[in-house]
């Protein structure tokens, strides 16, 4: 086949990591256009774990664990650039605050959560206690909240804090197994997680605290992202992206890339930034 690494066409896409590459699947409505799937970036020597998207500058951000770093590249065709490459242990989840122009990440060796400007400057650790295996992290800038999951087998939990690490609280700690994957749907204000231990997909309203099960019997989720009625999770069992219709409560589609190896983080690359004002803009 001919060159594969080009600018992405306009529209909304799924971006996901598969070891040495970041792939994309275009979305038509909420459906995957599997024929349009291809690699966005080849990073052959790297093991890419987390991916996140900045809708303002149309950049994909990712964490990488072989020479631990956080990098970014324009999905309109740009060179990968490392923004953080020192003092990282095992960076896993990464989240973008597109309003505050910040990135957050979890580090599963240093057992902390850190923040920096999108260019890597002004770096700071904001949570550094009580973490064993932090992985997924999600930012909700319009409400000024951060969410993360720790899959510590002895005491898995999902936590929240303000975006500076203050007002930290445990949201979920009962009936969790390996909550690898986390996503926040701003339309429904629901925080949802996919659990590779309980094999359940569940959601809760972080303010009200009510919890509901979307689906059980899912296989081995690693990452998840949501858009409208659908959630899309990466599955370590099938090496595939699996679509879940949250209202029908069933898996409605799967996409299996040609290369058969583990899929890691997944995110939605929106055509346009979601509406919303920065919570901190009032300060």
């Amino acid at each position: 086949p001919r060159p594969d690494v080009d600018a992405l066409p306009p529209g909304t896409h799924l971006l996901f990591a598969q070891s040495g590459r970041i792939e994309h699947v275009p979305l038509e409505g909420y459906d995957m256009n599997k024929d349009g799937a291809k690699a966005v970036l080849y990073l052959p020597a790297k093991v890419v774990i987390g991916v996140a998207y900045d809708c303002v500058e149309k950049m994909v951000y990712w964490t990488e664990i072989t020479s631990p770093s956080i990098s970014r590249a324009s999905i309109q065709g740009g060179e990968p650039t490392a923004v953080i490459s020192s003092n990282l242990g095992s960076p896993e989840g990464v989240a973008i605050d597109h309003l505050g122009r910040l990135m957050f990440w979890t580090d599963s060796l240093k057992d902390h959560i850190a923040v920096a400007s999108l260019d890597g400057s002004q770096r700071r650790v904001i949570v550094d206690s009580g973490l064993i295996n932090p992985r997924a992290i999600i930012a909700d800038p319009p409400n000024g909240n951060l969410y993360w999951a720790d899959w510590n087998r002895d005491a898995p939990k999902i936590e929240t804090s303000h975006m500076d690490g203050s007002n930290r609280r445990v949201l979920v700690k009962d009936d969790l197994g390996l909550p690898n994957a986390l996503t926040y749907d701003s339309q429904s204000s629901l925080l949802c997680w996919a659990d590779a231990g309980t094999h359940k997909l569940e959601c809760m309203h972080p303010g009200r605290g009510d919890r509901s099960q979307i689906l059980e019997g899912i296989q081995y989720p690693f990452g998840i992202t949501s858009l409208g009625k659908n959630m899309y999770y990466t599955d370590w069992k099938r090496n595939a992206v699996v679509v879940v219709d949250r209202y029908a409560g069933r898996e409605s589609n799967t996409f299996q890339p040609q290369k058969q190896t583990k899929l890691y983080g997944i995110t939605t690359a929106y055509a346009q930034c979601p509406a919303g004002q920065n919570y901190c803009a009032g300060n």
Partner: peptide, 9 residues
Amino acid sequence: DNIDPNAVG
């Protein structure tokens, strides 16, 4: 047998 299969790296 002293690693966790859910871990990466």
